[in-house]
Amino acid sequence: MTPTGRLFGTDLVLTRTFRAPAEDVWASVTEPERTARWFGAWEGEARPGATIKVQLGFEDGAPWCEAQIEECAAPTRLALSMTDEAGSWHLEVLLTETGGTTELKLVHHLENVDSVGEVGPGWEYYLDLLVASREGTPQPSFDDYYPAMKPYFENLR
Score class of each variant (00 low, 15 high):
Asn155Ser: 15
Thr10Gly: 10
Glu85Ala: 14
Tyr152Val: 03
Arg47Ser: 10
Thr4Glu: 13
Lys105Cys: 12
Glu111Asn: 11
Leu14Trp: 04
His108Ala: 14
Gly117Val: 06
Glu103Asp: 10
Arg77Thr: 12
Gln55Ala: 08
Arg19Trp: 02
Val93Ala: 10
Ser28Lys: 01
Asp84Asn: 15
Ala36Pro: 00
Leu127Asp: 10
Ser28Asp: 13
Gly117Arg: 00
Thr101Leu: 00
Gly5Gln: 05
Phe153Asp: 01
Ala148Trp: 00
His108Phe: 07
Asp24Pro: 00
His109Lys: 12
Ser28Trp: 13
Pro3Lys: 12
Gly40Ile: 01
Gly122Gln: 05
Pro151Gln: 15
Arg157Phe: 01
Phe8Val: 10
Trp123Arg: 04
Asp60Ala: 15
Glu154Phe: 04
Pro63Phe: 05
Asp114Gln: 12
Cys65Thr: 06
Pro48Val: 11
Arg37His: 09
Leu104Thr: 04
Gln139Pro: 00
Ala79Thr: 10
Trp42Ile: 03
Phe142Arg: 06
Lys53Gly: 09
Trp64Leu: 08
Glu59Pro: 01
Glu31Phe: 04
Glu70Asp: 13
Lys105Thr: 09
Asp128Ile: 07
Gly44Cys: 09
Arg157Val: 00
Val25Pro: 03
Gly44Arg: 03
Leu129Gln: 11
Thr15Tyr: 02
Glu43Trp: 02
Trp38Ile: 12
His90Glu: 14
Ala20Thr: 00
Val13Arg: 14
Thr30Arg: 02
Gly5Ser: 05
Glu118Phe: 03
Leu127Trp: 05
Gln55Gly: 04
Ser141His: 12
Leu127Gly: 07
Asn112Thr: 15
Gly40Phe: 08
Ala132His: 08
Leu14Thr: 07
Thr35Lys: 02
Arg134Asn: 13
Ala132Ile: 04
Glu23Gln: 13
Tyr125Lys: 03
Ser81Pro: 00
Arg19Tyr: 07
Arg19Leu: 12
Arg134Met: 15
Asp144Asn: 07
Cys72Trp: 15
Pro3Met: 12
Ala73Arg: 13
Met82Trp: 09
Met1Gln: 10
Leu78Lys: 08
Gly122Lys: 02
His108Pro: 01
His90Gln: 14
Asn155Met: 11
Leu95Tyr: 05
Glu71Gln: 14
Ser141Lys: 14
Trp123Ala: 06
Glu124Arg: 10
Gln68Cys: 06
Ile52Arg: 06
Ala148Gly: 03
Thr30Trp: 02
Leu110Gly: 12
Thr2Val: 12
Trp123Tyr: 11
Cys72Asn: 02
Phe18Gly: 08
Glu43Pro: 00
Thr137Trp: 03
Glu23Asn: 12
Asp144His: 04
Thr98Lys: 04
Gly117Trp: 00
Thr102Ile: 10
Leu91Pro: 04
Phe8Asp: 15
Gly57Pro: 02
Leu7Gly: 08
Gly136Trp: 00
